[in-house]
């Protein structure tokens, strides 16, 4: 029986997540050698490699002038029982081949990823003030420390962990790719693990937040029970559910 798609409101949903994938770095274009070495590796740990996804890194080989034919390489990898799920560092020809093979093209380094993030951040920060103190060239994944109150309307973005010693006012927004620690009242919005880190946590001394979120899973103020409001808590993700738990403070 056919059903009208609009009658099924929750048929699908896009979610953001991150996981680690093995990357195969190639340094030769001799396909026989590659096949032989690959078979050896797989024999050593068959269970580990069985049906494993794999990203092919062609940059090193290209730099050495070894121009690998991607279509043949993909065949060898599939024969070894692995699934190529994308390439990176390819030249124009290889990128074209990749698309023909329906393999996505990934960016090469974490620096590129960081550049992308910055762009994202720029578009996100058209709100009036990303505070000048906080946004000034924080090294990748370093901890950002905030020592002045974060006022209504201010927005702080940290690439790594974010540690706030002062209050976060209602109407303020603190965002981190890693964990968030607030050693004071948290009244605004706090979003940890915004690039999809499900292990990220939020810690605060006094939970009065408007919204808390970890890797896109969020709770609004109304959903926070009275048992945790105003308490020192940690927030973490378990089976896609936000868990809010008292932190026992020993005085």
């Amino acid at each position: 029986m056919l059903m009208d798609a609009s009658n099924i409101p929750f048929a699908l949903e896009f979610k953001s997540t991150s996981f680690s994938v093995p990357v195969l770095v190639l340094t030769t274009d001799d396909l026989d050698v590659i096949e032989q070495k690959l078979q050896e590796k797989v024999r050593k740990a068959p269970e580990f490699f069985k049906h494993s996804p794999l990203i092919l890194d062609l940059q090193e080989a290209n730099n050495q002038g070894c121009l690998i034919d991607l279509i043949e390489l993909a065949g060898i990898i599939r024969k070894a029982g692995l699934f190529p799920i994308g390439i990176r560092g390819g030249n124009a020809q290889q990128n074209k081949q990749a698309l023909e093979l329906q393999l996505p093209i990934h960016s090469i380094s974490s620096r590129d990823a960081a550049l992308l993030d910055e762009k994202k951040q720029d578009t996100a920060s058209q709100e009036p003030e990303v505070n000048t103190h906080a946004s000034s060239n924080i090294a990748l994944a370093a901890t950002t420390l905030i020592t002045y109150p974060i006022r209504s309307g201010q927005r702080i973005y940290a690439k790594g962990d974010l540690v706030v010693l002062t209050q976060v006012s209602a109407g303020a927004e603190i965002i981190a790719e890693g964990n968030i620690h607030v050693y004071n009242s948290l009244r605004g919005r706090a979003l940890a693990g915004v690039q999809g880190d499900v292990e990220a946590r939020i810690f605060c001394f006094d939970l009065q937040a408007e919204l808390i979120s970890i890797a896109g899973n969020y709770k609004i103020s109304e959903d926070l029970g009275d048992s945790v409001k105003g308490k020192a808590v940690q927030v973490y993700l378990q089976d896609q559910a936000l868990i809010i738990k008292d932190i026992e403070l020993h005085h």
Partner: peptide, 24 residues
Amino acid sequence: VRDSDRMLGLLASKSRRAEQNEEP
């Protein structure tokens, strides 16, 4: 109170002293 909080945020980020990294 909320509007004052907002204004305090602007004082800390959009004033001459903030822009020139002087004492707040």
